[in-house]
Structure formats: C-alpha cells, structure tokens
C-alpha cells in the first residue's frame, strides 16, 4: 500500500518534475519574449517619435486641427501619442505571443479573444474621444452662432447640440464594444428622433420667427438688416 502511495507520489513527483522541466524553458522563453518585446517596442516607439519629429508631424497635426482636439481631450502631443500607441500595440503583441508560448490550454482561446477584442476597444475609445471633442466643438459653435445671431436660449440650444453628439458617440462606442447592441441603438434612435421631431415642431410652430431669422442671416436677399446700424469697417 505504502509502496503504491510512494509509487504514486514518485510518479507524481516525476510527472511534476518532468512537467516543470518541460514548462520551465517555456516560462523562461515567455519572460524573454516579454522582456525583449518591451525593449523592441520601446526602441520602435523611439524611432517613430524621432521620425515624426523629423517630418514635423506636429505641424501637420496643428494644421489639421488635431493638436487642438488632443489638447481639448488632455492628451499628449500628436507625435508622443502616436509613439505611445505604437509601443503599446507592439508590446501587447509580444505579451500575448509570450503567454501563448506557455502552451496553457484554454489560455489560447482567451488570448485570441482578447486579441480580437483589443482593436474594438481601441476603436471604441477613439470614438468616445472624438465624440466628446466633437460634442464640445458643436456646443461652442452653436453657442457662438446663437449668441452672435441674438437668438434667445443660446445656452439651451448649444447644450442640446452637445448632448446629442455625445449621445451619438456613446452609442457608437457601445455598439463597437458589442454591449447591449440592440438596446443602445434603439434607445439612441428614439432619443434622437424625439429631439429632432421636437426641434422640427418648435421651428414649425413656435420658432417660425427664429427660423426665419436664421435663414435670413445665412441667405440674405437684401442688405443685411441686423438690429444695429453701426458701420464697422
């Protein structure tokens, strides 16, 4: 009996030590891959940043308005951001190939799922950032136009614009992540439709004058009759 136990233990130990002996190189390999991956990713990110600086990437970003957008979202400058993203994508790639090299069952599927999820996550984050920047932009544009056109409730109007664009961004981000897809889309459609209908009714019935003023403002048929007659230029 004892022999059997001892044999089993021995076998178990043997199995364990064999397994461990088989696993150890993999572990070491994984650690090596991850470490080397970090180094490589950092190096590539550095090269990318240097190259971007060399080609005045930030100037380009300035001109396209990207810099301003990033500033609004409190993100680093365009070249630094790009380099960071390159680093993370590379390093995460190495990380997962390292984990994969361990050969753990079940891990592979998880890894592949995660790998598939990552881009969607990125896209969702990007959509959210862009959405909020855009919402902010639309809010300010609406506010300024409304104020300069002497429209009443300028803040309400601009707040509405911001809310709508934000809502749209959140809905798109959630859809991208695949979370409660149908509910989100339907809810958004209902909310958006309601606001639009509300606006249409408001313009049609209550805001006819306002609408006419807006239209007049943008498509003047006769000399612009603003309510002040100051000669500016």
């Amino acid at each position: 009996m004892m022999d059997m136990i001892a044999g089993a233990l021995q076998e178990a130990w043997l199995n364990f030590s064999e397994g461990f002996a088989a696993f150890l190189p993999r572990l070491i390999a994984m650690l090596a891959i991850v470490a080397a991956g970090w180094l490589i990713a950092a190096a590539v990110a550095f090269v990318v940043r240097t190259l971007l600086a060399l080609f005045r990437f930030n100037k380009l970003a300035d001109r396209t308005g990207t810099t301003e957008m990033l500033k609004r979202a409190e993100l680093p400058a365009a070249d630094r951001l790009t380099a960071t993203m390159v680093f993370w994508v590379l390093w995460l790639g190495f990380l997962f190939s390292g984990v994969g090299s361990l050969g753990l069952t079940g891990m592979e599927q998880l890894t592949s799922e995660f790998v598939h999820f990552i881009p969607r996550l990125f896209v969702a984050i990007a959509i959210l950032i862009a959405g909020f920047v855009l919402a902010n932009f639309a809010w300010r544009a609406t506010l300024l136009t409304a104020v300069n056109a002497n429209l009443p409730s300028a803040r309400l109007l601009s707040g509405g614009a911001r809310f709508l664009v934000s809502l749209l961004a959140v809905a798109m981000a959630l859809e991208q992540l695949g979370i409660a897809q149908h509910v989100v889309v339907t809810a958004f459609a209902i909310a958006f439709g309601a606001v639009m209908l509300g606006l249409a009714i408001a313009f049609g019935i209550g805001g006819g004058g306002v609408a006419r003023r807006i239209v007049d403002q943008h498509f003047p048929e006769k000399p612009d009759t603003k309510d002040d007659d100051v000669s500016h230029l």
């Binding site: 300010r140 506010l143 300024l144 104020v147 002497n150 300028a154 309510d227 002040d228 007659d229 100051v230």
Partner: peptide, 20 residues
C-alpha cells in the same frame, strides 16, 4: 447709431458665453 441693441447684445452675450 442707437446703442441700446449693442448693449443688449453685450449683456446677453456675456451671460451666455460665460464658459467660452
């Protein structure tokens, strides 16, 4: 030119544009 409309626009504008 009359200044009332200007003043009115100024007051309303400062109120509405506060965050900006």
């Amino acid at each position: 030119p009359a200044t009332e409309p200007l003043v009115e626009s100024f007051r309303a504008g400062v109120r509405d544009l506060e965050p900006v």
